[in-house]
Amino acid sequence: MPDLSKLSSYQNPEGTLKDRLAPRVKDRLGMINWAGFKDRTVLDIGCNNGMFVREAMKHGAKRAVGVDKSDCIIGARQLAKGKEEFWQVDVESEEFKRFCPRFDIVMVLSVLTHLKDKEVFLDWLDGIVKFALYFETNHGEPNKKHIELVKKHIYFDSCHYLGPTDIPEKPHYMWLCLKSSHEMRYPDISTAPVVFVPLNKITGIDEETILRQTTTYSVDSEKFLKLKEDIKKRGIREPIILEESFKMFQGGHRYLAAKQLGYKDVPCRIIKSGLRQTKIDGRPIRRL
C-alpha cells in the first residue's frame, strides 16, 4: 500500500483520498487531449503525485517523466503502475537543465509562479518542447498574464485557451500551445545533421512562390511578421529542411524572413530526397 502521507494535500490521486479532491484535477483531465499522447514522449514539470504521468502512460505514451523537488515524488513512485519515471530534482538546477532531453509534450501546470527566474527557465524550456506545451497559471489576474511571458520566450505556431480550472473564486487558467510539427510528422528529420547553407545555394523556392502559397499563411499576415520579428530578436530557432541537392523541403517562411533580414547562411537539416514520399498515419507528407 503506497505511503499516501508523501502526497500533496491539494490533489486527489485517482480518487484515493476522498477528502482531498481539488476541483481543477477533474477540469484539467477533461481539457487535455489524451489521444494525442499515443507514442509520444511526455514531461510533467512539477508533477506532484504523478497523476498526469500515469494518465499519459495509460493513453499510450512512449515515455512519461514526472519531475518535482518535493517529497511528494516518493508517493508518486509508490503509485507508479508501469514504466512511469519520477525524478526528484529542482527544475532550475544546472544539472537538470544540462541533462534533460527534449520531449514531444511538456506540461507546466501551476508551476511558473513558484520559480525564481521565470525568464531563464522559459528560455531553456523553448529548447525542450518539441511540439506541445500544456500551460496552466496559478489563480489571479496577475498570474494569468504569465501566458504572455511564455509566448515572449517560446515561439509557438498557435496558443489555444482551454478555459479556467478550479473553483470560480480562485480560477486557474489553462492553455495548449503548439509548435510546428515537422519532427512529429517526419521522424527522420530529428536525426538529420544541422549545417549552415548559403541562402543563394537553396533552390526550389523564391519569394514569388511563397507569395503565391494559399495552403499556409500569407507573408502579409501577422503570423509572418511575428515570425520575422522573433528571428530578428532571437535568431532562427528551427532549422530549414532541405533535400540533399539543397532543394527546399520545408521552411519557406523562415527562408524569406532570413533573406529580408540580411542573412547570408542559415541553419538547415539535410534529408534524403526520397523522404517526401513517406506517409504518416496513412497520409502523404505535405511539403513546405
Rank of each mutant, 00 (worst) to 15 (best):
I74K: 15
D71W: 06
G82Y: 02
Q88K: 12
Q88G: 11
K62Y: 04
K69E: 11
E84K: 14
Q78P: 03
V53N: 02
K83H: 15
N49W: 12
H59W: 05
N49C: 13
R54Q: 15
G66I: 00
C47L: 00
N49H: 15
V65C: 09
R77Y: 01
D71E: 14
R63M: 04
K81S: 09
G75D: 03
I74W: 09
M51N: 13
K62L: 06
E84R: 13
V53Q: 03
W87Q: 06
M51E: 10
K58R: 15
I74M: 08
N48H: 11
S70I: 02
G60N: 01
I74E: 15
G60M: 02
K58A: 14
E84N: 11
W87K: 12
V67Y: 14
C47F: 02
G82C: 09
G50P: 15
V67I: 14
N48F: 07
G75V: 01
A56T: 10
W87S: 04
A80I: 09
V53K: 00
Q78C: 06
A80K: 12
F86M: 01
A64C: 09
G60H: 05
H59A: 02
I74A: 08
G82K: 05
M57Q: 04
I73F: 09
G50M: 01
C47K: 02
I73W: 08
Q78M: 11
L79E: 12
R63H: 06
M57L: 12
M51P: 09
R63P: 00
K58Y: 04
V67W: 10
D71L: 07
N48Q: 14
M51I: 13
H59T: 10
A76S: 10
A64L: 03
S70A: 14
N49E: 12
L79T: 11
H59C: 01
H59K: 04
N48L: 13
R63L: 10
V67P: 12
Q78G: 01
N49P: 02
K58H: 07
M57S: 04
G50H: 06
A61M: 04
G82I: 01
G75K: 13
R77D: 05
G82W: 06
A61F: 04
E55T: 15
G60Y: 01
V53F: 02
K81M: 09
L79S: 00
G60W: 03
Q88Y: 11
S70G: 06
K62M: 05
R77L: 07
V67H: 14
H59V: 00
E85T: 03
F52E: 13
A76H: 06
E84Y: 13
K58F: 03
H59I: 05
D68M: 12
G66V: 07
